[in-house]
Design a protein around this nucleic acid. Sequence first.
DNA 1: CAACTATATGAACTCATATTCATATACTAC
DNA 2: GTAGTATATGAATATGAGTTCATATAGTTG
Lengths: 100, 100
Amino acid sequence: MSSYSCCSSPSKESKQVESLSTLLKIVSEESRLKLLCILMKGEHCVCELMNHNDLSQSLISHHLKDLKDAGIVTNNKKGLRVYYSLTEKGQHITNQLFKI
Amino acid sequence: MSSYSCCSSPSKESKQVESLSTLLKIVSEESRLKLLCILMKGEHCVCELMNHNDLSQSLISHHLKDLKDAGIVTNNKKGLRVYYSLTEKGQHITNQLFKI
DNA sequence: CAACTATATGAACTCATATTCATATACTAC
DNA sequence: GTAGTATATGAATATGAGTTCATATAGTTG
């Protein structure tokens, strides 16, 4: 109905921009970007992430949830510890980002 | 003073993450990302950007200012019209982003 | 079982930022 | 000069999202 057509196919492109925007908003946040920077080097549990960052446990947990919901990280539990790592998607994204 | 060292060199990496975060926050916003999507195809004046997007003149102007301040776009005036286009940095960034 | 550790979660609060509104500036045409 | 068009800008408002706090859950150890 509205007359804008950003690129070739209006709605398709619009959706694409929307989902890219959503993804970028998640990774652009500084605390989350720091977490991703650490996870790029391999799996870490939450308490390790706390030691690397000066973020509270609760905050880290919230951010990890966001990253997990976005499919950027995954986790697996070993006893009390929960270990987080990048998914393939997460690896791809972080690699692209740090080229910028 | 604080004990975190995200990557190799604490402060250096921290600054890098901070500036990347700043940049990504600017381009992640959906309205701005739409504008960039249009500008990827070439120079456009503000009134053209208004026709492609359903954003107000004022809002577009504000966003363009943010993008310009970040060095992503530049502009040149021809009569009443102000034409915006991507800088080299802007082209590099948008190319990277749309690969994600 | 109770005590303890590691992590998750929901709600409240705070803060940043997108949006709107009114107005200013710059340029053109008459 | 005035009128009209295109764009910019500052302040106010609205909205979304990050942070904190308290508490819950899950697992371990004794």
